[in-house]
Structure formats: C-alpha cells, structure tokens
Design a protein around this nucleic acid. Structure first.
Length: 578
DNA sequence: ACCCGATTAAACACTC
DNA sequence: CGAGTGTTTAATCGGG
C-alpha cells in the first residue's frame, strides 16, 4: 500500500549484511504473528540417525581432505620459524581485515601474537571482519564436502597467480622469495599492513623456504602436479614446479582470494570435522558400538583453534553481530536477526546431507542441497519459526530452498507460500506483500521454472540458471567468499555434483526477461549443457519427464503431490525442512 | 554517478 | 464475478 517512503521500512537486520541483501522488512512493528508458537519441532532426529551413519564416510574423507588442506595452509611441518623483520606474515597481508577471522588468526599466530594483534585492533574492525567471516563461514561450514571444495576452487580460481600467495597458503613467509616481492603486489602489500603487523614483526609463518624445495617436497606439489587449488598443472620436477608457482600463482588478487577461501575452507572443515566426529561418537555410543578408532578428532573444535571456535559461539560475538539464537528463548530483537551463522554443524544437525554421494540410505530428497540457507535454517529453524524476524536471505534463495527441499523438488505456488509461513514467523503477516514478491521472483528469475503437469503447475529450480545469477567475482574481495557461499556458489557446487543427473538441462524461460545475465559466465556453466525445457512459452511440452529441476537433484521424480496435500500450513512435518 | 540486484507495488491477463 | 496464479513494469534502495 502506499507509502513509498522507504524510510518507513525498517531493516530488521541491521547487522545482517550477508552478501545477500536480506529482505528488507517493511514492516510495521506491529506484529502480528500468528501463530508462532510452538515450536518445536523437529523430528529431525530419527531419520537423521541413519543418515549419520553415512556421514562416517564423509567424515573420513573430510579428515583426509582437511589434513591435506591444512598442510597446505599452515605450513605443516614447517619449521616455524624465524622470520626476518621484513618478512611480514604474508598470509596476514593478503587478507583484508575483514577476511581474517579469529580462528584464522589463532591458527596462524601464536597466542601472544594474537593477543597483541587483537589488542591493536579496534572494536569496529573486529566487528567488521567478524561479520564478514561469520557470514561466509556459515556457508562453508554448511556443507561443503571435499569435492565441493575442490570444485569451488576451480571455479573460483580459474587462473592462478602468485607465488606469494602460494607461500602464504602454505603458511610460509616471504623471506624465501625475495625475488618475488616484485610481484604484482607492491611489496608494500606484504611489507606492512598495519593492522596485521605484529608488533615485533614476527611472522607467524613458518618458514619453509628452501628446505623443502631442496628436499623435493612441497605441500603444493605432489604426484607431478601442482596442488594449488584448482590448478593441477603438471610439473616434472620441483624446479619446474617452483617456476610454475612463481609464474602462475603470483601474488595477485586471485591468489589472495584463493588463499582466503582456502583458509575458510580449512577452518570450516575443521569445525565440521569436529562436529562430525562428535556425532559419530554419539552414534556409536548409541548403537553400543565401540569406536573403532581412537578419536583424535573427537574433541571437536579443538582442532584448530581450540577454543576459538567455541568461543565464537559463546562470547565472541561482538556487539552487533549476530548471535545464534540457540533457542526459542533467545530474545528476539528486531535489530539482530540472530541466526547464527557459524555453526558448522548446521547442516548436519539436521540431516541435510550434502549432495554427497555418500550414502544412499535415507537420502530422501531431503538431502538436498546444502546451501547456506539450509544451514542457517537448519540451525535456526526454531528461531525463524517463532521470531518475527526477517530471514537474511533473498526471496529467490528462500524459494529455491523451499523447492529443493521438497520431496520432488518442485512445489506449487501455494506450497511455496505455505513453506514460507511455516518456516518463518515473519511471513505470517503482510502476506499480500511477500506473496506478491514470491510470485514476482518466480516469474522474474530464470532459475525458477514453471512446469505444468496434470494437476496444474509446479515450480522447479533450474540450478544452472541459478548459478549463473551471480557472477563470480573473484577479486579477492571479501565479497568473493561471500558470494560464493551465499547461495550461488553453493549451488554451483551442488550442481556440479549433480551433473550426472542433469542430463536434461534446463533452459528456460522467461521470455519476458530478456535480461541478460551476462556477466556471469560461470565456469560451471561449462559443465552443463542446457537443454530446452519448455516452459512458459510452450506449456504443452512439459511432461513430467522433462521436469528440469528434478533432474538436478538426480532424485526420484515422483509425481508431484497434489497441491492440496501440502497445503496445510502446519501440517507438514518439519523435518522436511531440515 | 552509475550499474545492478533485490524488494515492493501494482497493473493486467488468464484460468477455474 | 472473484480468487488465485503469472507476467510485467516501475520505483526505490543499497552495495559495489
């Protein structure tokens, strides 16, 4: 109605700056949430148990991957070392303030260093980067699996760049590369970053220097190929490899971005691994099994930074940052949306298994995509369900999630509406507004494909299109991670995984929107081929078989449920969501 | 300043 | 006719 004044709109989430613009709330405070209550829910448990078993496998893989990654990041065995004053922690240097997370710092710096560093930072700064990280980490944690990550890298990286970065990635120092300093980035870049500079000029980076090179071993080199994320360039020998590193992975935006991402990856994997380990233990215990192996990782979170991670959840939230609403009890302030972002477990906690082909069991369609949303929602399901807080995701993201989460990966408009109201207290009011927005989004975005079937029409998601939506800006900006994670990046991962099933691509729609979505030529798109699917223009063509989205999922396409069946607002088992 | 994406509002067409 | 569903257009905002 009326009011055009945006001023009236109140952002419920001032702090939620996830890359995705969150829905802006316009609401009046008056809330009238209808129902909210209740909560609880979740039946996430039972079905999940089985699923968890499957995760054991994933856990293993993750562990390996983690180790591998970790070694690449913090120079593993490296000799920690000495560092000339000049040597600045490259890794730190590469990171923009906002990209450094406490965890990372802890991983990189020694406690004392960290202390000093932190002390120097302003609260604001802290807030900023934490915010960024929190946002991004959410996604990663959520659900990337090793393969996803790898793929992510490829997508993201496309091109290589600096050795410095590389070093950094390894957790090394610059000292070794005196020559490199000339790289793209002015030395200044690494030479001083006020913020990160440690008081004593120490560099946390271990120096791996020539030692490794001589020995022929290098964390980024193995089996004759460069292990730089997404690279895989073949190098006959170490010399060649070194050369390659210097040429292809020089310090530049891309490498920097890659490093950041890698850090995030490692971090999240650690968290996730810890969680999974914990879960595994619990499962075994439950099943009366003895852990077959000692649980080195058992202590969750400690892996990486002991404490740090945990801390995050508890006290480390700077004001203004979102604190996870752990329970319904959490006070809901309009200011903060609360949802946590970090929880690594997010996903798991609720059976969202990723697309990983890990276990067939109980895969149901719920295995859906592990998107940041999935993670977020899984974790804060109750929160959103009861709090009149606007979720920090775009309509498109939410719609997509709703659809992908459905058994057949397709929903009628009404079902989508119901999902919104069921999942978010916020959407229990102002229905005209958001429903209109939902319809608008469905029509507007190519990623939503309307498929007609006997019973009417259902909406599906064209993952390929969805991926295209956001151009992968890989500049090493914080946005990079954010974007990747937030949604699209994620999707791409999943999409990739589902490629197989995706034979029938989808092409689609929206005649009207001739909008070019140019920019984004995602590398990923290369993986997919789009095939025409019908839709809006030629409705008749649509047969069940041609249902696009489902293909992605590679899951069963059962007939769509009659919309009526899912109409009820609250009748659906929540687990469906999570 | 500009571009772009998201959101909101609203007009309009269609179907049941 | 009215409600629901879809499609479009336009305006506004915020971020980059």
């Amino acid at each position: 109605m009326m009011v055009e004044s945006a001023s009236e709109t109140i952002r419920t989430t001032p702090s939620n700056q996830n890359g995705v613009s969150s829905l802006s709330s316009q609401s009046d405070g008056g809330g009238g949430r209808e129902g909210g209550s209740n909560g609880d829910v979740n039946g996430e448990i039972s079905p999940v148990d089985l699923l968890h078993l499957q995760q054991q496998q994933a856990l293993q893989a993750a562990r390996q991957f983690l180790l591998q990654q970790a070694s690449g990041l913090n120079s593993p065995g490296s000799n920690e070392v000495k560092q000339s004053p000049v040597q600045v922690p490259v890794s730190m240097a590469m990171m923009s303030p906002q990209m450094i997370t406490p965890q990372q710092m802890q991983q990189i710096l020694s406690p004392p260093q960290l202390q000093a560093l932190l002390q120097q930072q302003q609260a604001l700064m802290l807030q900023q980067f934490l915010k960024t990280i929190l946002n991004s980490s959410l996604c990663f944690s959520a659900a990337m699996c090793p393969s996803d990550l790898q793929q992510l890298w490829k997508e993201v990286s496309g091109v290589p760049s600096s050795e410095e970065a590389l070093k950094q990635a390894e957790g090394l120092d610059l000292s070794t590369n005196s020559s490199n300093s000339t790289s793209a980035f002015p030395k200044a870049a690494n030479a001083h970053i006020p913020l990160h500079n440690l008081p004593n000029g120490q560099n946390h980076t271990p120096k791996r220097d020539s030692h490794e090179e001589h020995t022929g071993s290098h964390p980024l080199y193995g089996h004759g190929e460069c292990k730089w994320p997404g690279c895989e360039a073949l190098c006959e020998d170490m010399g060649q490899f070194i050369k390659h590193l210097n040429n292809e992975h020089a310090l530049d935006d891309r490498s920097t971005a890659q490093c950041r991402v890698q850090m995030q990856v490692v971090q999240q994997l650690e968290i996730q691994l810890a969680k999974e380990s914990e879960r595994l233990q619990a499962m075994m215990t439950h099943l009366h099994m003895r852990p077959s192996e000692p649980k080195p990782f058992n202590q969750p979170l400690n892996l990486a930074s002991s404490g740090s991670l945990l801390k995050r959840d508890s006290d480390a939230y700077p004001e203004g940052l979102p604190h996870p609403p752990t329970s319904a009890a959490t006070p809901i302030t309009p200011l903060r949306q609360g949802p946590s972002v970090i929880s690594s477990s997010s996903l798991h906690a609720h059976s969202h298994s990723h697309t990983h082909p890990v276990g067939p069991i109980r895969r149901r369609n719920s295995d859906k995509y592990c998107t940041p949303i999935a993670s977020e929602l899984a974790q804060n399901c109750e929160f959103y369900k009861n709090a009149d807080v606007r979720p920090p995701f775009t309509y498109a993201s939410l719609i997509r999630h709703a659809i992908l989460e459905s058994p057949d990966r397709q929903l009628t408009l009404n079902e989508i509406y119901n999902w919104f109201t069921r999942k978010f207290a916020y959407f229990r009011r102002n229905t005209a507004t958001w429903k209109n927005a939902v319809r608008h989004n469905l029509s507007l975005h190519k990623c939503f494909v309307r498929v007609e079937n006997v019973k009417g029409a259902v909406w599906t998601v064209d993952e390929v299109e969805y991926q295209k939506r956001r151009p992968p800006k890989m500049t090493g900006s914080p946005t990079l991670v954010k974007n990747m994670i937030s949604g699209l990046g994620f999707g791409s991962l999943n999409a990739k995984i589902c490629v197989d099933g995706l034979l029938a691509g989808c092409h689609k729609k929206k005649s009207h929107n001739l909008r070019t979505y140019p920019s984004s030529h995602h590398l990923l798109s290369a993986f997919f081929s789009s095939h025409p699917v019908h839709v809006k223009e030629e409705p008749t063509e649509v047969e069940e078989d041609s249902r696009p989205v489902s293909l992605l999922a590679g899951v069963t396409h059962s007939l769509p449920l009659p919309s009526d069946e899912r109409d009820l607002e609250e009748d659906l088992p929540t687990e469906e969501l999570e």
